[in-house]
Write a protein that binds this DNA or RNA. Sequence first.
DNA 1: CGACACATGTAACACGTTACATGATTTG
DNA 2: CAAATCATGTAACGTGTTACATGTGTCG
Lengths: 175, 175
Amino acid sequence: MYGYQLRHEFEASTGATWPLNVGQVYTTLARLERDGLVAGDGEPDGDGRVTYRLTDAGHADVARWFTTPVTRERRQRDELAIKIAMALTTPGVDAHAVVQTQRTATLRSLQDLTRLKASADDVADQAWLLVLESMIFQAEAEVRWLDHCETRMTAAPGPAAPASVPAPATEEALS
Amino acid sequence: MYGYQLRHEFEASTGATWPLNVGQVYTTLARLERDGLVAGDGEPDGDGRVTYRLTDAGHADVARWFTTPVTRERRQRDELAIKIAMALTTPGVDAHAVVQTQRTATLRSLQDLTRLKASADDVADQAWLLVLESMIFQAEAEVRWLDHCETRMTAAPGPAAPASVPAPATEEALS
DNA sequence: CGACACATGTAACACGTTACATGATTTG
DNA sequence: CAAATCATGTAACGTGTTACATGTGTCG
């Protein structure tokens, strides 16, 4: 495939969920070629398109990617979880409020996603639909977790005294 | 707080979930100071520790971070969702197998997490427990979604012919 | 004609991350 | 004493991301 087409394919499969800057396709292609995973016909064809192909090493890489599950260790740090954890352990922060703000926001985005799914239910291709539903499932789990936080927090009161382990720093209230 | 302490606090709040290289604390502190969000007492104290404090701008930033919800747009691209979507749209890839491999892996990590939670249920502090439970909730949602993919896929058959939009590229089977 | 989509590319930044260097202090 | 922990820092890399430059073709 050629660069522009790759971007088109990506957005077709994942929808407008994660927009992809075209420039990034080319930088990435260049880096993949540098690493010997793809090879491009240097010259653009009649329509000014430069076709890239997977090398053997590239094929192997892709196959490995498909057969290797995404492990929990490889996952990115979860900003939300960190935020709530920090809200709990940071003196002067109303963790309750943080949870509530997040909850309403997540609920709102859940509505948006559901509406989006309803409107595109028959039209879209499988892949894009599944990606959408993945986000819905995640949002639902997020709400559930936030409610769970709520109950946990009301059960055990305020921020446990900060465990500044080696030497306690002077504590300043936030905001 | 000083660098080493920051790392300690982070790992105390999030557990061994996301290990944090100490070096990164110092690079980050330097960058935050460059941006005027923290200020450090240049000289190390008697114990060789360099204390950093939030500036006014830093306090504002933190407050903003706590009051602003994590929106779905700001979320990182989801590797798993992309992988499944690609497995569906890439000819020559057994999407069914990809889903199954992932499912068993996720189930396994779910077991690990549950075991971990059981073993640390009383000991640990709130924050670390909530982070753990966040991962559990996510893993559960993941399994549910994978099952959902399964049913969706068996309902509608094989990979829909690749929508190489502008000009069809020569199709090569993968692996 | 002017605007827009198609198509390729580059320069540059920021950030996460790691490997490494250095020294003090503690502890088995 | 040797090993581990505490504590600070730096050089370097890779990658995600963007803003910009450039040109062609199409269409109202």
